[in-house]
């Protein structure tokens, strides 16, 4: 028997050596240049070497385009290549911010930019508030011992996997004049509603569809936070006879707050960037009722015969500043939480 074990060990060793041999060679091949570089730059600078590929990638696809975008925003004309575009300084920014009254978009020279900002603000207010609320409720329910919990978790997460265009088309077909929802309304004796003709309905469905599509992702973050809360805290509260409301407000919510913060800030950032779903669903209409800031940028740069890349870049920089401030807020809040 011992003989058989020895044989098995022998085969295992051989297999291990066969697999490990090329890996060892590879490591040695990497080791020589890395050691040589370390001798030149010193061990303290070595982390930069390992960060270099990621930094190069980030620089090429984020930092350089950011500077290019800024450079474009200081130019005018319709030429594509920046070297051929005339320098206009801050003229594009001046055009965007030329308003008699910032609270009234119609008084602005570029009224559609301001309508885009106002519409985006309204969208964010409703979308983020209701998405965080519904995600929290859903996470709380899915965290309980309910029948078919895995199935329900999958159901809520499924829309996240769908392409935004698919999501928008599905809902568009439901909401059209001859769509399923109107067929249902007629079948129960109600009047047909032209959802995409009314500004209020169009905004409502833009918010609703966006929440439907993204809620699963935020629910998952909150669910992870709920599962990280120690069960003994709840057991202790139960033994003390604490009410359910008090447990929620004194234990669950404070301990879930870090995750809530992440959800709020991520939802805000995604809200500012809203475009694809709403563009397919409402086309920005009726009128400009659901035309958001990203659609304004897209239209300015691409759909007009005179493709105004300078103005679109200036609007992008304004949007970038808003996103930067939101990201800083998230970082500051996270840091404060870590310090606490």
């Amino acid at each position: 028997m011992a003989h058989a074990d020895d044989k098995a060990t022998g085969i295992g060793d051989v297999l291990q050596n066969v697999v490990a041999w090329p890996i060892r060679i590879l490591f040695k091949l990497i080791d020589y240049p890395v050691t040589a570089i370390q001798n030149v730059i010193g061990i303290r600078r070595m982390p930069w070497l390992f960060l270099l590929p990621n930094l190069a990638f980030f620089g090429m696809f984020v930092i350089i385009p950011l500077f290019m975008n800024f450079a474009y925003s200081l130019t005018g004309g319709t030429e594509l290549f920046i070297s051929e575009r005339p320098y206009t300084g801050g003229e594009q920014y001046g055009f965007l911010f030329d308003c008699d009254n910032y609270a009234d978009p119609i008084s602005c020279r570029e009224d559609r930019f301001w309508k885009g900002i106002f519409n985006t603000a309204v969208f964010i207010f409703f979308q983020v508030s209701f998405m965080v609320l519904f995600s929290l409720i859903t996470a709380l329910v899915l965290n309980r011992e309910i029948r078919g919990r895995g199935f329900w978790r999958a159901v809520f997460f499924f829309p996240v996997l769908l392409s935004p265009v698919v999501v928008a088309l599905i809902w568009k077909w439901i909401l059209l004049r001859d769509g399923i929802l109107n067929a249902f309304l007629i079948s129960i004796g109600l009047d047909r509603i032209l959802f995409f003709v009314s500004p209020e309905w169009a905004m409502f469905w833009a918010v609703f569809v966006s929440i439907w599509a993204h809620m699963g992702f935020y629910t998952l973050i909150l669910l992870a936070g709920l599962q990280a809360i120690q069960p003994d805290l709840y057991e202790a509260a139960e033994m003390d006879g604490t009410s359910k409301e008090r447990v929620f407000f004194r234990i669950t919510l404070p301990l879930l707050w870090p995750n809530m913060l992440v959800v709020i800030v991520l939802a805000l950032i995604k809200g500012v960037q809203v475009f694809d779903e709403v563009y397919v669903l409402t086309g920005g209409g009726p009128g400009t009722a659901t035309q958001f800031i990203v659609q304004y940028i897209y239209n300015t740069a691409f759909t007009n015969q005179v493709q105004n890349f300078g103005l679109a870049s200036a609007a992008s920089m304004v949007l970038g500043v808003v996103l930067f401030v939101l990201t800083l807020t998230q970082l500051a809040a996270t840091r404060r939480r870590d310090n606490d």
Binding site: V197, P286, G287, Q295, T303
Partner: peptide, 14 residues
């Protein structure tokens, strides 16, 4: 019908 012209924005063709 407002549905055709009114339901989108900008110069989108429908």
């Amino acid at each position: 019908s407002l549905e055709l012209w009114g339901s989108v924005s900008g110069s989108s063709y429908l």
